[in-house]
Amino acid sequence: MTHSTPLSPAGDRHFDGLAEKFAGSLYGGPRGALRLALLDELLPAMLDLDGQPMLDVGGGLGQLSAWFAGRGHTVTLLEPAGEMLERARVDLVEWPVTFVEAPLQALPERAPGPWPLIACHAVLEWLSDPRAALATLAGALAPHGQLSLMVFNRDALRMSNVVKGNLQKALDDRLEGTGKRQRLTPISPLCHEQIATWSRDCGLSVRSVAGIRVFHDYLRHPPTSEADWQRLVALERRYCQAEPHWRLGRYLLYTLVRAEGSSEEAPR
């Protein structure tokens, strides 16, 4: 029997019942390992970090919260899926992390800030209205606050479908998932132009951008030796911020900065 995960009343995809899948096939495999390895290098380079309090929105199992807590930040983890949050609570018991069970849309009531640092990784693509969600994040930032935003790249999803031979699907631009099955194709994959435009509308400036997994997901055959794996990691590190390669990263990683006095109102 096929398990289905219903959408939330707001039309968003949450991940109740999928904690094991995330822990195993995603973060426990090479895709997740490569993603975390790249973040370990990129986050200190792309963000100004001085141990400031930070909010991890949609933090899931808490890998990102652990990364920041381990570097001296007091972390608040906001996550709507109760099972995910409980796993994170157990795994992060030794770290200075506060846990809040709530969706991103509840941020103004449950964790209003203003925050000097917010991370929101791999969340917007699972929401029915990612533009409004970005405005909510912008409104929670302090003046000159930083938002580390990572989104699933629509252009990379198109390229992946072409590589797999799904030519008509790519021509028809039928790239979104339904959010109702265990397959993890986002319901709202996003492109760089959307993030750049929406950020400007929210009073945010794009300070830096990188591609996460710009080569790995297009390989016909994954590395079979440690030496080839290290070569792949070296290639990913070398080209993750280089034109034109970053534009086809499976994820796009941004540092967005809020200007002092910018509006907190969501664009209409």
Rank of each mutant, 00 (worst) to 15 (best):
S160W: 09
F215A: 15
A196M: 07
L219I: 03
V214Q: 05
S148W: 01
S205F: 00
I212E: 08
N166R: 14
R174G: 03
H216R: 11
R158W: 06
N166H: 12
C191P: 00
V151H: 07
R220P: 01
W198D: 10
L157D: 09
A156Q: 05
R158H: 10
C191M: 08
D201K: 07
R183Y: 12
K180T: 15
A210H: 06
V151A: 09
Q146Y: 03
K169M: 13
D172Y: 03
S208T: 12
L171Q: 10
R200K: 12
S208G: 12
V151G: 11
G177E: 07
Q168A: 13
F215P: 03
V163W: 02
S208F: 00
M159I: 15
S148L: 13
G145Y: 02
P189S: 11
C202W: 03
P223K: 01
A196T: 14
S160Y: 08
C202P: 06
N153C: 06
I212G: 09
A196Y: 09
K180A: 11
F152D: 14
W229N: 00
K169L: 10
N166L: 14
L175D: 05
D217E: 15
G203W: 04
V209A: 13
T197H: 09
Q194P: 01
G177M: 08
N161T: 04
R207W: 03
W229I: 00
A210G: 06
R183H: 04
Q168D: 11
H216F: 12
R207Q: 13
S199P: 07
I195H: 04
G177I: 05
Y218C: 04
L219C: 02
M150F: 03
N153H: 04
R158D: 10
C191L: 04
T185I: 14
L147V: 06
V209K: 07
L147W: 12
G177V: 08
R174D: 15
G203P: 03
V162M: 09
F215M: 10
Q168S: 13
V209Q: 12
R231P: 00
P186H: 10
S225M: 01
I212D: 11
R181H: 05
D228L: 05
S208K: 06
Q230K: 07
S205E: 14
T197I: 10
Q230E: 09
Q194I: 10
I195V: 15
F152C: 13
P223R: 00
L204Q: 10
V206Q: 14
W198V: 08
L157I: 12
E193A: 14
S160D: 10
G145S: 10
R220Y: 02
M159W: 05
A227N: 01
C191S: 11
R158E: 14
Q146T: 04
V209S: 07
R220G: 12
R183P: 01
S188H: 06
Q230C: 01
G203I: 09
P223Q: 02
S148C: 13
C202G: 05
A170M: 08
T224E: 08
P189M: 07
A156I: 03
A210V: 08
T178N: 11
S208A: 15
R220I: 00
Q230L: 06
V214P: 04
P222H: 04
D201R: 15
